[in-house]
Structures are given as C-alpha cells and as structure tokens.
Design a protein around this nucleic acid. Structure first.
Lengths: 209, 209, 209, 209
DNA sequence: TATGAATGAGAGTTCATTCAT
DNA sequence: GATGAATGAACTCTCATTCAT
C-alpha cells in the first residue's frame, strides 16, 4: 500500500527529525551533514539526495520542528473546554523544562537558533514570520474564545494581546533557559499567568499565587 | 613611559572592537579571523598572537561589547535626577532601532548570539550570567531609587521586578528586531512602559497613551 | 517480432545521439551521465544498463557521431557526377558554420574532443585512427576519381594528398572555430579550395577568387 | 636581496610549471590540485593560497606554458640572420617530436587542451586569442623581414599568410601527434616547408625534397 | 527493462593555527 | 610585535556505479 511513497516520505521526515535532534544537541553551528547521516544510519550522500543543500535542510528542519510542536499544541487546544484551560496549558507547554516528557527545554533552543539565523538569512526570516504569526494567532484565538464564553472581559485587540503575551513568554523563557537557578520553571509559570491575567483582564484565583 | 603597555592595550581593544563590529555585521557563524584582521588592517596571525584562540576572542568580544554598552548606560543613569527619568531612558535605550545614533538594533543581534552560544559553551554561559545579573541589578536599582524618592510605591521584591521587566523587554525586543512591520519600535516603547508601570505600581500620565 | 531487438537498438542509438548532443553542447568534461539520461527522459541507471561504463559510452558516442557524419557525407558523394563537385562539397561540409542546416560548427567541437581524448585513451586513439583513415581515403578517392575522369592531372600519391589536404582543412577549421572574426567561414572555403587546387594541380576558375 | 619577493615569485612560477607538467602528462581533465601539490612537494592548501581557484590556475598554467615557449622562440629568432633561417627554425620547432631536447610533442598536447577549453570558457578563449595573434604575427614578421632582405618576393598580405601557414602547421601537427606511424615528423617538416614556399613564393632548393 | 534509493570515493575549498623570519 | 607562507583537518557537494524491486 503505497509503500514506495511511504518509504520516501518516511526517509524525508526521518532526516528532518534527525536534523532537528542534532541541531538541538549540538547547535546549528556545530551541525554537520555527517552527524545527521550518522543519526539516520545512512551515508552523507543520501542526505543531499533528499535535500538540495545543507542550508535548505537546516531551515526545513527548524520549521519542521516548529510545525510538529504546533500540531501537538493545536490538537491539545481542541480538546480543551474552556479558554482558561487552554491558556493554562499554553503556558505550561511554553515553560522550558516544566514538563520533562515533552522536552520543552530543547525546543526553545531551536527557536533561538531560528531567531539568529532569521537575522541574516532571508529564507529563514520568511519562514520565521509565518511560524510567529501562527503562534500569535493561537494566543489571540484563546482570548477571543474566552470572550465568547464570557470567561474573559472585552478589551484590547486580541491580536495585540497575542503579541504582548507571546513576547513576554519569549523573554521569560530565555531567562529560565539560561538561568534556571535564578528563575525556576515554576516561577516562570506563575509569572506568565499573572502577566496574562493582567493583560487580558481576568481574575486569578488567589490559591495560584 | 607605559607606552608599550598602552600600545598593547590599544591593540587588544582595537581587535575586540573590530571583532564586535564584524560579528554584528556578519553574525557569529560567519565571522572569520581574517575578517577581523582585515578590519584592523593587520595579519590574521597577529589576532592569534593577542588571543589564544578564535573561540576565546569571540567570547571576549561579545562581553566587551556588552561592557561598553553597560558603561555608557551607567554613565547616563548617574546623570538622571529621578527614577522615572532613569526608567524612561532605560527603555529608550532598550528598544531596537529607536535611537539611530546608538545603533541599538545592532547590539541586540549580539545579545542573541550570546544566548545561542551560552546554551552550549560553558565559558560563554558563565560570562552571560554575570552580564545578565548586572543588567537585572540596574533595573532593580532604579526601582529602589524610585522608592527612596517616593516616586514608586513599596511592593514586590525589586530584584524580582528587575527580572520580570528585563525579560519583558527581551521578549518585546525580539519581536521588534524580527518583525518591525508588525511591532514598531515606538509601540515597543509604549508597551514596555505600560508593563513597567503596572509591575512597579506607578501611575502613567494619560498623555503618554 | 524482432520488436524487442528493434526497441533495444533504438534505445541504444537514442542514448548515443543524446550523448553526442550533450557533449556538443557542454563539452566532454562537463558531460554527466545524468545529463544524457535527462536528454532521453530516462533514469541514469538505465544508461549504465546499456553501456558498461561512462567512459565506454562517451567513446562510442564520439565515434557514432563521426559515423553519422561520414554516412551523410558518403551518400552525398555518390550523387555527384564530377570530382570537382565532390571536392567543392567536401570543403563546403568541412567549413565550420558555413552551412547552418548541417550544424557543422558543432561537429568540429566533437572532433577536437576526440583528439584530446585520443592523446591519452588508447581505446579512443584506436577508434580515431580508423575514423581518420576513412576520411583521408575519401579525399584520396575524390582525387583518384578526378584523375580517371581527366579533371585532375596525374601527380603525387593520392593518399599523401589526402593527408595533406585533410590536415590543411583541420588547421583552417580550428582557426574559424576559434577566431571567426579574423577568419570567416567564406574565407576558409576560398583558401581551402586554393590549397587543394595547387596541391592537386587543377586550374581554379578566376571568378572564384 | 629581495629574497622575500624572489621566494614568492618562485613559488608562483614553481606551481605554474608543475601544473603545466601535470596537465601535459595527465591531461586537463585528469589534473587534480593535489597532483600539482605533490609535484611541488607542498600541501594542496598552498596551491589555493597562491591561486584563487583551480580553474584560474589551469588557465594561467596553459598561458604560462605558451609564454615560455614563445619567449624561447623569440630569442632564437633574434639570433637568426636570414628570414629563411628563421622560417626553417620555426618549422623545426613546430614539428611535434622532431627535436627531443625541446619536448615539442608535449607542448602540442597543451595547445589542444587550450583549444578545447577555449570553446566553452570565455576566460580561456580570450587568452587563447592573444596567444594566437602573437603567433601569427611572428610568422608575418618573418615574411616581412624576408621581403626586406629580398629573400622573399612581394605578394599577399603577410598577416594573411601568417594565418594560412599557422593553420597548416596546426593541422599537420595534429596528424603527427596522433598518427606518427602514417605521418612522420620528418615528413611534416618537409611538407610544411613546401607549403610555406608555395604560399610565400620562394624557391625551395631541390636537395631539400 | 526500468527505476531510483543508496553508497562511497573523491574533489575543491575554507580556515584556524603554527612558525620561521 | 608583526607578517605571511604553509599546513592539515574538515566539510560540503558531486557523481559514477550498484542493486533491490
């Protein structure tokens, strides 16, 4: 049953996954084609059989990882009944190292690599913009949903809030990522929720604090 | 006298400045020793006469740039009469591209490079922690100063607020840096001030909004 | 019946034609198996199914192209009534770029590739010798025919003259091929005829000059 | 005494000589940078320290070899008293393999490589044109000199004759180079002289034939 | 017959680093 | 201090060739 196509698709994806893992472990600058090939158990030549150049592969691997993350995230959101639940989960997923089973911490390393590369590589810059817009949209969607359900008050433009909350999470995540002794994941979670509640305008149950 | 030492110090610093400029322009990954040498008008060999290795030089160049920035910043702070003035200036200096004469936008590129590198290079990680602590301290100092002068109300731990405000600025700066069409420098300035006022607890003059 | 064989023969020849065309366009050094495969619309693997190696294919392609040229040439000769007509036509066909419909210029590129390769590849050297002898023979045949018809006077050995006239044409063709501004195809045609007339010993009508 | 410059110049030239020798032996297509490096007893990296790319080096090596040949040739010409002596020597030097001590045969291999490459490489094409013009000029100079001394009769344009005689020598040389059994160096020498005498219009002493 | 995934042997090129001068 | 020739290790990428299907 379409095993040829399946096989090729698998190989393609297999390489992307391997690349994402290698970038996560060694960093973009230290990632060699042969590292990725080793990870897949194939020859370096094969990597360039599937991807036209190392640069293209790296960019695709970074966006692939982001896509994977986003898919998982979206699926979870759809299962949530309330906007508050969605928001809590979004924050939970955003805190580096909070949920070990999700290896959150590692993905942040990829996002930072995307930023650096996007500064100079137009191809990456373009991709990053798409990914970023999608992410801001997700936050805005939660806010709009909460307003429909009456959980959140009407207020500022949801898109604007999406950007602000997203940026705050970025900034805090960097602190956790770099400085985990000073700023623990749990603290980031609490602070993120406080900032969100104040920006969106809902009451935070005191027990949380 | 001391001309020998002076000269050596100058060469040392000259190389660091050149390195910082090259990293800013081309990115860490694309910076070659020969680029730095060209910038100084010397031979590549000489660069390694002053710095034991490329890696060491790059780390020193990044911290050097941060030091330079911090020195300029501190000098400015000392001249300010009120905490509010200090805070306004701190934000102004933190917004990428707001003040052309300071070329702020370019320095942010360096900070992100520091983050990426700190993720995997212990030497850089250690340096980064020092720089970051110093920066958070500066924000905390402004808050403490404002409380002494009565401009700001008593409230949460100043260090904690320093971290939160610093992180927010980081997150917003990335947005500006990457997405300047969506999120303008001026908007970042306004949002930063709002977040700071809410976190510190002072009133923002309505004219500002 | 025989369709299998026919088909195989066609495929074989199709590849040789494609190879000759690719070599003509890109040069021997820049000819890849995949270029030839693309030209045929088949996979590179198939090329090596029909030809045991790239080297073998290239040599066969070059001799194939020469054979094709020779066949066309022989057929024309047979239709000519006089030796002089034959000689005129031979020269016409030998001048690079004189007859656009024959794309003569391109074939010369192949002959030069044959020379270079023959210098070091014994297989090619052997093939080239056969092709060259055949060509010199053709010129000698014209001379002998002209002597039979009384158009040309008796004189030196026809084989010897074939070699001399052939060499002259080669040398002039290179000049035209490389230097067409200095030495035009028409001039080569005139010079070739003059040299031939003097070597063979027939009168050239003054109108020609 | 300028040993630095001397040394560098030597290295430069040493590489060019090595390259020319390797191309002569293995052919342009089979010449690797590492072959040239081995020939010089240095590392392959050094070759690219002196020449910006392999392609540039090869082109420079081919023109260098031609320059060397031309210099030797010019020096000889200047020593000759009569045009006839000059012409005899020119032909002698042009026959592949006639004078073993000059390794003439090998140089022809280079000239053919130049032709092939010039067909597709504009850089080589340009260089080749210069070399070729210089060579045709040399023949024309001999003719003009012979007319001044009265050895040769007035007649056609000397430049034109230079081209024709040059082309004839090219064509004959290819025959000798490829086919030395059929067409010996001595025969080429005789034929070349005959053609020249007829084109220029001087009497050939019967003893020569 | 035909494909195309896969390999592996290089090739050119880059670049940090060394070292004699 | 300063140069720049020289090295050598790596890396990306190419391509003929093989082989299972």
């Amino acid at each position: 049953m379409a095993s040829k196509t399946r096989q090729q698709k698998d190989r393609h994806q297999e390489i992307l996954e391997a690349a994402a893992r290698v970038i996560t472990e060694r960093g973009l600058a230290e990632t060699r084609i042969s590292d990725i090939a080793d990870r897949c158990g194939v020859s370096p030549g094969l990597i360039l059989y599937y991807f036209e150049s190392k640069d293209r592969l790296l960019v695709e691997a970074l966006t692939f990882a982001n896509d994977q993350f986003y898919l998982r995230f979206s699926r979870e959101m759809r299962r949530m009944k309330t906007a508050r639940e969605q928001l809590d989960r979004l924050i939970e997923l955003s805190v580096p190292g909070l949920l070990p089973e999700y290896e959150r911490l590692d993905e942040w390393a990829l996002w930072i690599e995307i930023w650096v590369r996007a500064l100079r590589d137009p191809m990456m810059a373009k991709e990053r913009e798409v990914l970023d817009r999608r992410w801001r949209q997700s936050i805005a969607d939660i806010i709009r949903f909460g307003r429909e359900t009456g959980e959140f008050p009407a207020g500022w433009d949801a898109e604007e809030l999406g950007l602000q909350i997203g940026a705050t999470i970025d900034g805090l995540a960097i602190q956790v990522l770099m400085n985990d002794t000073v700023f623990s994941p749990t603290r980031m979670q609490r602070v993120s929720l406080e900032v969100a509640s104040r920006l969106i305008g809902f009451e935070l149950e005191p027990a949380e604090a």
